[in-house]
């Protein structure tokens, strides 16, 4: 284990395309559901408990089971009904692999796997544990949207980081659950969904002008 390596993987400055994705926040802002830090808190809590848990579990599983990437990728397909979200996840997986290949030797993998699979593959290549992959996944799940909230709503960045600090223990808890379940059969891995993330992503994909890719 290398803490510095984990920090590198979780760093928002990792050039892996994350800055262009709001994690489903842009459509919810447009729908008027997120206007302030409280609204963002509700969004992030729900996201962490749903797609955050799923991403963390699949990242941990991909880190742990490097010969089952194809099956795990199919498991995420079955958990991602929105084609717009599948596209966004694969775009981010591709971008993450691009960055990861420059950093560590990564075993052969599809060109654009789902983002959590790519994250698990990077973690494995970097010598990190499944639990660390899960923390990185859960952490990026909320920090990406939080950064987008600052840019889209002009929220006070200190208030947003105070919120992230409050969510950190929940992030750890989710990652621990995810890591614990990361050895389960693919069908038994977490599958908690978030209907408005799916619906919002489909609406967002039809917009004439959007600032974020998803």
């Amino acid at each position: 284990m290398s803490l510095a390596t984990l920090l590198l993987l979780a760093d928002g400055r990792l050039p892996s395309g994350g800055h262009a994705h709001s994690g489903g926040l842009e459509p919810q802002i447009a729908a008027g559901r997120v206007r302030d830090v409280d609204g963002l808190a509700g969004f992030l809590r729900g996201k962490l408990a749903t797609s955050g848990l799923v991403s963390a579990a699949f990242a941990a599983a991909a880190c742990r089971r490097t010969r089952q990437w194809v099956d795990l990728d199919g498991g995420l397909d079955a958990r991602t009904p929105s084609p717009a979200l599948r596209k966004a996840s694969r775009a981010q997986g591709r971008a993450l692999l691009r960055a990861g290949r420059a950093m560590w030797p990564i075993a052969p993998i599809a060109r654009d796997p789902h983002q959590p699979i790519a994250l698990g593959a990077l973690a494995a290549a970097a010598g990190l544990t499944p639990a660390e992959a899960a923390v990185a996944a859960a952490h990026s799940m909320i920090t990406g949207s939080a950064s987008a909230a600052v840019r889209l709503l002009g929220l006070d960045p200190y208030a947003v980081h105070a919120l992230l600090a409050r969510l950190a223990p929940e992030c750890d808890r989710i990652a621990a659950v995810a890591a614990e379940r990361s050895g389960d059969p693919v069908d038994d891995l977490p599958a908690v969904g978030a209907p408005l993330l799916d619906i919002g992503a489909e609406h967002h994909a039809t917009w004439e002008v959007r600032l974020f890719a998803s």
Partner: peptide, 11 residues
């Protein structure tokens, strides 16, 4: 179910 009534899940 944390955040189930937040803007990601049922809003």
């Amino acid at each position: 179910a944390p955040g189930w009534d937040g803007a990601a899940v049922l809003g």
